[in-house]
Nucleic acid binder design. Structure first.
Length: 800
RNA sequence: GCGGAGGUGGCGGAAUUGGCAGACGCGCAGGUCUCAGAAGCCUGUGCCGCGAGGUAUGAGGGUUCAACUCCCUCCCUCCGCACCA
């Protein structure tokens, strides 16, 4: 007999809905647990990645509820963004219509999975009841100087016809369409995330329950490095070239200076020099090279001499100034001091162009020998200073400090900290996003939209042609507005916000999704936040998480929340693969969750996806594996037909053991072994039979994993109220203590026998038992016993 | 190049943190039931060997009574960052 999931699942979901079981109530008096998964972009259909992400979270949420927590488990949609705009163009419709249709479809599929969401808290970022608060937050940021406008060279994707954040440029290409990104000069809105760089870095220490990998990625992204800014004066004139280095210990080995081709001083340096034309040609050539080519590491380092000379301030040596493609304008000061003996790039460049070298650090124990001629590569490791005047003989690490201090005293250098993190460009020349609430007045300049005029709504029926510029700029009634200050005719900002803005605070909105006095109700946020468990893909390890942390700190500075970090625990789930590859349309290897649900039901899908691999690792989809999960549920289903009056003690003990194991495993997100534990218990029940109590507890343990299934069995067992609201079963520690233990017997560390003895048998008795073992005796014949190692209740190792 | 994670049967994966390697599942083989099949149920299943036994956690070495686990050398895979000065 097979269980009829089709009837069961639908019926159970309706019952949960009617009873309002998943409603989060801040007044309950219970300890809170905020379980959140990264909300989806509403593409219209869920994929296996969603199923996995949300199933993992759902087990955690349901388990915590059974453990007596008041659980907040919300769901919503990250609904702004380019795909909707593209789809609208393609299908000749409006992004809002398309998006809300997708949300509907997606929500239906999510509901079919039986997730324990409090749907009353649903939010969509494209709803003006949501995005008006984006505008509110933006105005607050503007007031505090966090949001500002500047003209800058921005990344421009010619295919998407929009600007991209640095973070959206991957290896020189657009993160979405991989088209090579160009540079374009535009007036853009930025958020000064760099003002928070120290806190964003330092507070990573608080995040003890985040994967180390994510912490490392964040830390690298912020990219703090300490070094010295050294002032190289030009030999002729007063011009000073500031140079940043982290290896000031090598300063005495600097034999030339290199500027980035884009460096603003270059034109001045070459003016009137014989090299002028050659340099200009080189700059022209480099500027045409795409970033991809320029940054691929095996490319030969090219450069030209500028004809100018600079003075090394530590020894007054005159050294040539070059420009080269391997020096980047966007890092440091766009200029370097080159030390070919101790930097591999400089080494290769110097060899190529016959530039001079000087060794200033030697490895410890190799003080005498080897000259520059013998070097085949730069020596970049630690060592002892040589050719460095008063610093000779110091370890280079010590010299690094001493030289920096000395240079600062002499006024020829400055100890500085350099950060890789850049301000966040949020302007987008797109329609389907939050309008930036700013007005341009010819008299008053840039004027913020007054708070009482929010939201600035997106106009309906904007023209979509797919051709350049923002569609908002073409809607006259949107653009035309009176200046809030002087009432003269003015025009609105027509750019919209990057969608990462929307997702940087949605977790706060979930605490009070209908609140209309502010982005969130401070009281509710103080109760629910921070998020206790956050679950999502590793692809958001840097951007989304960094921005959310930034917003949280901003809200704290506004006095709206009392904490620094939004997410206490983070789990990044692995991807779902088919035949070793990511499921994707182009590969044609997609397994549609909906088809699996129709064939086996949501519970089987949930069970398989949890059982097949631990949450963090990649999961290989296996059609036969899912049948195994279905088989297991049927196996459990049949137990109800053969219940005994009283189960054997072995079964009862096994049950208590399972309660302990499964509970601990769920707490540690080891769902695969938790389910294995349940399978073991079921195997024992098939051997020895279960009674009503054992079976009931098994059902409750299954509840977080396969809730519809467990709920149905629970009712069939004669229970009136829902299984999901039952307390998690308790185990009896007394019953976990084994009466007899199996002790393994080893000779020289090799397993030779096992004996079953009463627990806590003394060492002496154990030895006696072991030495009289029939299987052991032959191994001891003619071999003197050197020593006997006894681990109580575990093993006896006889060394002969 | 730098940083991180990892390498265990035919496959997905376990191993209480130094104490029976391979839990649990998939697959495979055999049995049972059946007129037959499917489904169930039971048994077996790392490799070599009829057997006693030997051997095995990427390769090699070391520490230890005992190593998947700790240390050293090397190889490979995946991920992130990357001419970052």
């Amino acid at each position: 007999m097979q269980y009829n999931f089709k009837d069961i699942e639908e019926k159970r979901r309706r019952a949960w809905q009617e009873k309002g079981i998943f409603k989060a109530d801040p007044q309950s008096g219970k300890p809170k647990f905020y379980c959140l998964e990264m909300f989806p972009y509403p593409s219209g259909k869920i994929h296996m990645g969603h199923v996995r992400n949300y199933t993992i979270a759902d087990v955690a949420a349901r388990f915590k509820a059974m453990r007596g927590f008041e659980v907040l488990h919300p769901m919503g949609f990250d609904a702004f963004g380019q795909p909707a705009e593209n789809a609208a163009i393609k299908n000749n419709t409006q992004p809002s219509i398309w998006t809300y249709k997708c949300i509907d479809g997606m929500k239906r599929e999510l509901e079919k999975m039986g997730f324990s969401y409090d749907w009353e808290r649903e939010i969509s970022t494209c709803d003006d009841t949501y995005y008006r608060w984006n505008q509110w937050i933006f105005l607050k940021m503007f007031e505090r100087g966090i949001a500002y406008k500047k003209a800058s060279s921005v990344n421009w994707c010619p295919s998407c016809r929009t600007t991209l954040a640095n973070e959206e440029v991957i290896e020189g290409g657009c993160w979405r369409c991989h088209t090579v990104v160009e540079q374009k000069e535009l007036e853009q809105w930025f958020l000064k995330i760099t003002e928070y760089k120290e806190r964003l870095l330092d507070d990573l220490d608080q995040l003890r329950h985040w994967p180390g990998k994510v912490l490392t990625m964040q830390s690298n992204w912020i990219g703090k490095s300490r070094g010295v800014e050294i002032f190289f004066r030009l030999k002729d004139g007063d011009t000073v070239i500031p140079v940043f280095t982290t290896r000031v210990d090598t300063i005495f080995g600097a034999t030339y200076v290199v500027l980035a081709p884009e460096h603003p001083l270059v034109k001045k340096l070459i003016k009137g020099k014989p090299q002028e034309n050659e340099v200009l040609r080189f700059i022209e050539k480099v500027s045409k090279e795409s970033k991809v080519v320029r940054s691929s590491s095996d490319v030969k380092k090219e450069g030209v001499f500028t004809g100018a000379y600079a003075v090394n301030p530590v020894n007054n040596e005159t050294i040539p100034v070059w420009i080269a493609d391997y020096v980047l304008m966007e890092y440091g000061s766009g200029a370097i001091m080159a030390v070919p003996t101790h930097d591999q790039r400089d080494f290769l460049f110097a060899k190529e162009h016959g530039l001079s070298m000087r060794i200033v650090i030697r490895p410890v124990g190799h003080m005498s020998s080897a000259g520059v001629q013998e070097m085949t590569e730069a020596y970049e490791d630690d060592g002892i200073q040589v050719n460095s005047r008063q610093f000779d003989g110091l370890s280079n690490q010590e010299a690094k400090k001493k030289i920096a201090e000395w240079m600062e005293q002499e006024g020829i250098g400055k100890i500085v900290t350099h950060w890789r993190l850049r301000d966040w460009l949020i302007s987008r020349q797109r329609y389907w996003g939050t309008p930036i609430p700013m007005i341009y007045c010819s008299k008053c300049g840039v004027v913020p939209v007054p708070y009482e005029d929010l939201p600035v709504k997106l106009p309906e029926n904007a023209p979509f042609t797919g051709e350049g510029g923002s569609p908002l700029g073409k809607v006259g009634e949107f653009v035309k507005v009176d200046c809030p200050k002087c009432k003269a005719p003015a025009r609105r900002e027509t750019d919209t916000m990057a969608t990462f803005f929307d997702s940087s605070w949605y977790f706060l909105r979930f605490c009070s999704p209908k609140f209309d006095g502010a982005p969130f109700d401070a009281k509710e946020a103080a109760y629910w936040m921070p998020v206790d468990q956050y679950i999502g893909g590793i692809e958001h390890a840097i951007l989304h998480l960094l921005y959310s942390r930034f917003f949280t700190k901003f809200f704290k500075d506004l006095g709206m929340i009392p904490f620094d970090e939004p997410f206490l625990r983070l789990l990044t789930q692995g991807m779902v693969l088919k035949d070793g590859e990511v499921m994707s349309k182009s590969r044609g290897n997609i397994v549609d969750p909906d088809s699996i649900i129709s064939k086996y039901g949501a519970d089987t899908l949930r069970l398989f996806i949890l059982f097949a691999a631990p949450p963090e690792t990649e999961l290989e989809w296996d059609d036969r594996g899912i049948e195994g999960s279905f088989k297991f549920l049927n196996r459990v289903w049949r137990i109800q037909d053969n219940l005994k009056d009283k189960a054997d003690e072995t079964v009862v003990r096994a049950m208590h053991k399972a309660i302990k194991k499964v509970g601990e495993d769920i707490d540690n997100f080891k769902f695969n072994t938790a389910i294995a534990g349940l399978m073991e218990l079921v195997n024992i029940i098939y051997q020895s039979g279960a009674d009503k109590e054992v079976f009931s507890k098994l059902i409750l343990m299954l509840c977080p994993f396969v809730p519809h299934f467990a709920e149905e069995l629970w009712e069939l067992m004669g229970n009136k109220d829902s299984a999901c609201v039952q307390p998690w079963p308790a185990f009896d520690p007394v019953l976990l203590i084994e009466e007899n233990v199996t002790v393994i017997v080893q000779i020289n560390g090799k397993l030779r026998s096992k004996v079953i003895v009463p627990a806590e048998t003394s060492e002496e008795t154990l030895k006696n038992i072991v030495f009289s073992e029939e299987k052991i005796k032959p191994w001891l014949q003619g071999r003197p016993v050197k020593s006997v190692i006894v681990v109580p209740n575990k093993l006896v190792n006889i060394v002969v």
